[in-house]
């Protein structure tokens, strides 16, 4: 039972970056934007978070800096895809390459190539009074760093925003039929641009959580597909915040399973457990692709006549 609680707690912890990024992507996806570049945005968030924390000595200020820097890069993506109307996949791929090159360049310029990482302020476990004392449940749900609570609290808020708010309706509509939105006076460009910026906020925070919540330093290429998995979580979660949460937990559990298998001496070569999240992602895509809420105008730039 303790083992299980431990496992579930780990699953939740590992699900969080996916959930944070996914809660952003779900809005930009609904607005008709496929942002393959989320991976790169998270990488940028991870590095700028560490730098920010080092600079200010405060993890939250570090996260804020991570968000600001990441949003700036999300704006670059938005500029190319929404204003210039370039192909979203290609720009996303370019952003990933850019993020990879830039983070390496900056990381080496700032921290040097082979020095040990400096000590920074990180997100520490903050048990919730009383609740964390509940047997099992306390360990599973209430002994985590604050960003994890935030991520899960955001789920119902995002769900409400998506389906009950004016903004949510606009976002869902520009992804389905931008032309129709134009005829009722909605600014499609602005709506899509803002949706991308918002997903940048979340990707930046998610990246900062990876480098400062799960670890306490930056390594080159540390996101290792986390951004793509967040994209997959949105597809698997059928484009709703609630679905994203469930998908994230599935991916988180598969990650936790991977660590478990690695820790146990099962004789299975370590690479195979490491493949689990990627394989689960592929399976999940095959499972849901045929019957999904994918917006009709997904990945199609809106060109006003």
């Amino acid at each position: 039972m303790n083992e299980l609680a431990n496992f579930l707690s780990t699953a939740i912890r590992l699900a969080t970056p996916t959930l944070l990024a996914g809660l952003g992507i779900v809005f930009s996806e609904r607005a008709g934007i496929v942002n393959i570049g989320t991976e790169g945005l998270m990488l940028i968030g991870a590095l700028s978070g560490v730098m920010g924390s080092l600079l200010t000595g405060n993890v939250w200020l570090g996260a804020l800096i991570a968000i600001i820097v990441t949003v700036a890069f999300a704006a670059v993506f938005a500029f190319f895809t929404v204003i210039i109307k370039a192909d979203q996949t290609v720009i996303g791929t370019g952003m990933n390459l850019l993020a990879s090159g830039l983070t390496i360049t900056v990381n080496r310029a700032v921290f040097g190539a082979n020095t040990s990482p400096p000590k920074i302020d990180t997100f520490r476990t903050t048990p919730i009074p009383l609740l964390s004392k509940i047997p099992y449940l306390g360990e599973i749900f209430f002994r985590h760093p604050v960003p994890i609570y935030l991520a899960f609290l955001l789920v119902p808020i995002a769900q409400f925003m998506m389906f009950r708010s004016n903004t949510g309706l606009k976002v869902r509509s520009v992804g389905e039929n931008p032309k129709a939105c134009d005829t009722v006076g909605i600014n499609v460009t602005r709506t899509r641009f803002l949706a991308i910026l918002y997903s940048g906020v979340m990707a930046g925070f998610a990246g900062a959580f990876v480098s400062m919540g799960q670890l306490s330093f930056f390594t080159e290429g540390m996101i290792a597909g986390g951004g793509f998995i967040a994209l997959a979580a949105v597809v698997f979660g059928n484009y709703t915040p609630l679905g994203v949460m469930i998908a994230s937990l599935v991916f988180g559990a598969s990650n936790a399973l991977m660590f478990r298998l690695q820790a146990l001496s099962t004789g299975i070569p370590s690479q195979f457990p490491l493949m689990i999240p990627y394989i689960i992602t592929i399976f999940s895509l095959c499972l849901v692709s045929r019957k999904s809420n994918k917006p009709a105008g997904s990945a199609i730039p809106y060109i006003k006549e």
Partner: peptide, 17 residues
């Protein structure tokens, strides 16, 4: 200029000032 995935009333209020 309607959005088939949405309900009638969502289409009506969409963009309404």
């Amino acid at each position: 200029m309607l959005i088939p995935a949405h309900s009638a009333i969502e289409n009506v209020v969409l963009g309404y000032g």
